[in-house]
Amino acid sequence: MVNYIIRRFLAGILTIWAASIISFVVIQLPPGDYVTAYIANLQSTGTVLSREEADALRIQYGLDQPIYVQYVKWAGLMLRGNFGMAMEYNRPVREVIGDRMTTTIIVSVAAIILIWALALPIGIYSAVRQYSIGDYFFTFLGFIGIAVPNFMLALIVLYASFKYFNVQNIGGLFSPEYLQQSWSWAKAWDMAKHLPLPAFILGLAGMAEVVRIMRANLLDELRKPYVVTAQAKGLSRNRVIMKYPVRAAMNPFASTIGYLFPFVVSGSIIVSLVLSLPTVGPMLFKALVAQDLFLAGTILLLLSILTVVGTFVSDLILMWIDPRIRHGMEGQS
């Protein structure tokens, strides 16, 4: 079992390394580089940069060197915890990303928790009362949830709360007075109050999906003989369902922890723009447009690391909760 964990851990590190190369190369793929984007930007405001100035900029950022040299330099910086300079901001990447990574994680985790807290019970209800009015209602709602793009939902919510409830400060994660403040309990509480709405909007599509999966899983499990065994003991129907088939139907969800996170983050880019949430989503978008190598690369890499870590964690959880995996491995090693 320890072998297995070590193997998974090493595989995870290898994956992160591969991901770092891919993130770096992918960002280089579009024609031009940061300087071309910068020049284009300046031109639109009327300033013209001379060739010499452009070349000087390229040398300053190291963009004149071959890609593998750039990668090795970048990787070296990364290993030392220095993520390079965000060209556009002219500040260290670490400083620019800073709080945004924290808020991204908080918003995503809140969305995931909300997805599970709402979707799993609904899925259980839908399966146990299959073909009831409630089941049809949630099925209908679920398909709408999958079909409606979540930025659209965000726009509708913004519009409705502004127009009908006259709420001015609907977007964002903080009230204006806390925006510039450093972290405190009051600020955290302020964020907690702002969190449910964006978490709900971000989570809705995922929620609809989880409801469908849970319903299907549980319907399969409900027909298995062990359910009849448990019933034949004299357990009440509710206790039977909650202890046995629900337990079995939940199992697959542990393995989705890993990829739920990138799913929520990439889904959040447009929603974050609409709701002006201070997550990394919009920043990644801007960095890609500006071809800001270090900033975009760092964000992509951090997301891949989080995904790999998430997958590793879900492997551990699966091993912990599923005796078949645990004991299957005992036999091997």
Binding site: P225, Y226, T229, A230, K243, Y244, R247, A248, I321
Partner: peptide
């Protein structure tokens, strides 16, 4: 009390 044909699937694998 009842006993079944399929003793494998008649037990929960998680308990």
């Amino acid at each position: 009390a009842l006993i079944f044909q399929e003793p494998m699937t008649s037990f929960s694998a998680f308990h």
